[in-house]
Computed example of a mutant assay.
Amino acid sequence: MDDKLLSIPCTTITGEKKTLGDFAGKAVLVVNTASQCGFTPQYKGLEALWQRYKDRGLVVLGFPCNQFGKQEPGDERTISQFCESNFGVSFPLFRKIEVNGSGAHPLFIQLKKRAPGLLGSEGIKWNFTKFLIDGEGKVKRFAPTTKPEDLSREIELLLK
C-alpha cells in the first residue's frame, strides 16, 4: 500500500488512533455503516467474513456514518453496544464520520478517487458501500446491495 493511503489518521470507536499502516500487508475491507438502515443486517455478514478470514490476513473496518437518511444517530457508545449486542460485531469500528461533501473523512476521499462508482462518480450513494483494498493499495468498490458473503471469492483471491 502506498504511503498516502497508509498514513491517513483514523480514530477507533474507543478513541484509539490508527492508520491503515497498522494493517499493512493485509487485505482490508472498509465499510461505511449505519444502525437503522435496511442494510444493517449486513453487520452479521461482515462479522462472518471477519471470523472466517482474520487469521488469513483480512481486516474488516466499520465506519459509522449518519449522512444517509440520518440512519446512524447514536453516539459512539450507543453504536458500539448496538453492533455488539445485535450482531456480535468484534471487528474494529471507528468513530462516526462523513463520507461525502466538504466534511468527508480523508480515508474516504482517497478510496473514492481510487475506486469511483458507476459512470465514474465518486460520491457514495448509501450506507454499506464497501471498499476492498489489497496489500498493494489497489481498491475495488462494491455497492451497498452487494452482500458481504458475495465478497468471499474476491477475498480468497487476495489472500492466496
Rank of each mutant, 00 (worst) to 15 (best):
L93A: 04
S90F: 10
I13Q: 03
L151G: 02
C37I: 08
N127K: 00
F94M: 06
P41E: 14
P116M: 10
N86G: 03
P106S: 10
Q42W: 02
D150G: 03
T78W: 15
V31R: 00
T78Y: 12
L159H: 07
D134M: 12
F142L: 08
K130D: 06
A48R: 09
P144K: 05
E47K: 06
L29Y: 01
P106R: 08
I79N: 01
Q81W: 03
R52S: 11
D134L: 09
Q42H: 14
I79K: 00
L158R: 03
L61F: 09
A24C: 07
T12M: 07
Y43E: 07
D134N: 15
L61H: 02
V28Q: 04
L49C: 10
C83L: 11
T146D: 12
I133M: 02
T33G: 04
S35T: 15
A24D: 06
L61A: 11
C37D: 15
C37W: 08
I79M: 11
M1F: 13
K18I: 09
F131N: 01
G74C: 12
D75Q: 13
T129W: 02
G135W: 11
V31G: 01
Q67V: 13
G123C: 08
T19H: 14
Q36V: 03
Q71S: 13
S35I: 06
K140Y: 03
K112L: 03
V139M: 06
A104Q: 12
E84N: 14
T33A: 08
Q67H: 08
W126V: 07
K140W: 13
G120R: 04
S152N: 00
K4E: 15
L118F: 08
L151H: 02
V59L: 13
E16T: 15
E122P: 01
Y43H: 05
N100V: 09
G45C: 11
Q67C: 09
P64C: 10
S85T: 14
R141M: 08
D2P: 11
G21E: 10
Q71M: 09
V59D: 12
T33P: 06
Y53H: 05
D2Y: 08
L118P: 07
L5G: 04
L159F: 09
S85A: 04
V31E: 01
Y53D: 02
D134T: 07
L49N: 06
L46A: 11
Q51W: 05
I97S: 02
L58P: 09
P144G: 07
L5A: 07
D134S: 10
L159Y: 09
Q36D: 12
K4A: 12
L158T: 03
R77D: 15
F142K: 04
N100D: 13
P92Q: 15
N127M: 04
E84C: 13
